[in-house]
Each structure stands twice: as C-alpha cells, then as structure tokens.
Design a protein around this nucleic acid. Structure first.
Lengths: 189, 189
DNA sequence: CGGCGTTTTGAGAGAGCTCAACATCGGTGG
DNA sequence: CCACCGATGTTGAGCTCTCTCAAAACGCCG
C-alpha cells in the first residue's frame, strides 16, 4: 500500500513502472528523478567500491520505499536493479519538493514517515545484535515480523538460516513462550 | 557536533541538559517535549513488553540524535535512561514544528537529515547480514566505520567479539585487502 | 617504573551453518 | 478424483566458525 501521504501529490507525480528480472531501474550518477515504492517484487541497491567489488547497500521488498535520499541529491549514489519481476511507483522528486515547500502538513507527514522508518531500522539493528538465536527469533516475532510472512523470509530478515529459525521456534514453544497454532503459524505467549 | 540545520531554530529551542549514570531522561507515556542530541555519553532506549521483559530499542551514542519520532507523537513510546554520564541537547518539539511550518528550507533539511539516517541504517543492516566475519569487517571499514574509533567499538557496532574482529583484521592484512600502518590502525587496499 | 586499557594470539567449547532426508500443503493436469 | 510436483516446513548429524576464557605484548600516562 503506497503511504497515504503521497496522495496529497498531484496525480501526475506518481507513475507506475514495471521491471523484468535483472532490469536496471537506475544507475549511480544518473540524475535523480524521484524515490520509489515497491508494490511487488524485489529491488537490489548496489554500489561499486573503488576496488571494483560490488557492495550491497540494501534489498528493498514489497511495501518499502527506496532512494529517499534522491529527493535531496542531484544524482543517485548507487545502482538499482530488479531481482525479480517488479512493480514500482516512481514518486516524482520535483513534485515532492514543491509540495513540501507549499504544504507544511505534507512536509511534516513526510518527515514523520522517515522518522518511523528510522525507529524501525534501529529496532532491527538491536534485534540483529541479540546473540542467541532463540531470543532473536522471539524478539522478531514480538516485533510483528511474522505477519503473513513466511518463515524463510523471517529467517533472512534476522540473519539466521531457516533451519536455525525453525529450531528456535520449536525451542520457544517448548519453553512456553510461543504457541504454534498451525503449520508455520506461531503467536506469542 | 549538533547538525547545522538546528541552528535555524531560535536559541531558546535548544537546551543543554546533563544526566548522571542511570538517570531517567524520559519515560514511556510521558508527554513529548522534543528530540535529543547526544554530545557525550550514552543513552539506552527501552520498552516494556506486555509480558514484562525489557526490550532494548536502541542505544544512542555520541553525535547521534534520538526520539525523532517524538516530533510527531504526543507521548514518548519508550523509556530513555543515561547509561553513563551524558550531555544532551534537548531540541524543543514546538519550535521544530513551527519552523517546519514557516520555513520550507528547514523542513527539507530535516527530511534530508532523516533520509541520510535511513541510508546509514540500511547499510548497517546489510553489513550485519554478511555471514563471514572477515567480509563483515572489510565492509565495515570500507564504510568508514573505523575513523578515530577504537576497534572494540567497531566490533560492538558490527556484532562481533573484539577478538574475532582482530583476527579478521589480521586475515585481511594477510589476504592483502588491508594495510596495517600502526597498532590498531588499518586502511583499505 | 608500574598500572591500566587496548591490541593480539591461543585453545577449547558451543552455537549455528550446511547438507540431507522427510513431511506437509497447494496447485496442476491427466 | 488422484498422482505428481514444487515450495515451505521440520528434524537430524557433522563440521566450521565464532564466542569465551586466558594470557601476553604493547602503548600511554602518572
């Protein structure tokens, strides 16, 4: 779902674009045209180090925005490619900036959206910092990371193999911290 | 260094406050008065789960802001306590919102600041996702995480024991990806 | 010189990864 | 309707890598 705040933008500021697997969305040093929202599919953001190796900056999935910093920068600072068939919304940079200038409510909503993102990422980092697989899985579930998500994806999100994740889930059920109510469905307490 | 953009605020919007170790900065459900910037020391942000356990949301260190979301919320959503002697700047919420409403440049600068944060956190998450200690350390150094920082801090940032970090540094030197030019000083290539 | 903290290296134990096998579910086609 | 297939879920066993505990070298500062 595209965040509501973007509906304050004129209709022509939003453009749906589809990409096939491996297609390029933008390249480093391309002039920025806006930020993106992922309707479906997956996008990989990479940068090339001076040494030539590729550095993964981020993988953006369904319902995420990416390239927010493009709003305030002349050029993209990384490459973006679709790693599967992907539907995106391109949110026009000039329209966003104009709206921010003329509509303080919009500016606040955008900042609030960013602030929320920051919160979420900080929390994720804290979760990653948890050593024990069991506690990490527990924290992630407490954070609502298993909503409609499949467990393999949860595992990837929290940096565990899916096997380790399954084992932790089983442990947590044994330890009476989780309840299993269906194949692959768990709930806290 | 307090980010420059905040100097657009009236002088009375910034208040220096000092806390002793273990002192409370704010509590969950307290009415928000603003966001904070850490001049020195360390702050721990925690929430209490319905089950009673404490959940660490984030640990904010020197030169970080925290509680940005307070700008857009009536109440704080977690507890903040100083975990060492700490100097903070309290950035008044009403002043920030007023400035955003009347000064689009300020609003954009604030959003840009948030967007930068988001970029940084995403990158950190990608680094944490790297399995191999060697590659993780290499990525972190490539990201400039070893600027004046001591290695133990780097280790904590990237979720490795300091011993493992030292060993990876040694490996990377052997593999000719890093150069050691002094005790605890490394540079890429 | 003598502490104190960081850096470095060693050895053992434990946790999670990998490889592998199997179960279960939903969908697809005969 | 049933057999098959692919993807997810689940569990087992061995191996590898990192953590932990320990100790020593080094550098800084009083």
């Amino acid at each position: 779902m595209l965040p509501k705040l973007f509906h304050d933008l004129p209709a022509n500021a939003l453009k749906n674009i589809n990409f096939q697997k491996s297609e390029t969305i933008f390249r480093q040093y391309d002039e920025t045209c806006g930020l993106y929202f992922v309707i479906s599919g997956k996008v990989s953001l990479k940068r090339h180090s001076p040494n030539g190796d590729e550095i993964i900056i981020h993988n953006a999935g369904k319902n995420e925005t990416f390239a927010e910093a493009a709003l305030f920068s002349k050029e993209y600072h990384c490459d973006a490619t679709a790693i599967e068939t992907t539907q995106l919304v391109l949110i026009n940079k000039a329209a966003v900036l104009a709206q921010m200038a003329s509509n303080p409510i919009f500016a606040m909503n955008l900042s609030a959206q960013f602030a929320r993102q920051i919160q979420i990422y900080r929390r994720r980092l804290e979760i990653q910092a948890i050593q024990s697989a069991d506690e990490r899985v527990y924290a992630a579930i407490g954070d609502g990371m298993l909503q409609g998500n499949i467990i393999k994806e949860l595992a990837a999100h929290i940096g565990l193999s899916h096997e380790a994740t399954y084992r932790s889930l089983a442990n947590l059920v044994k330890r009476n911290k989780l309840t299993k109510f269906a194949r692959g469905k768990y709930i806290i307490k």
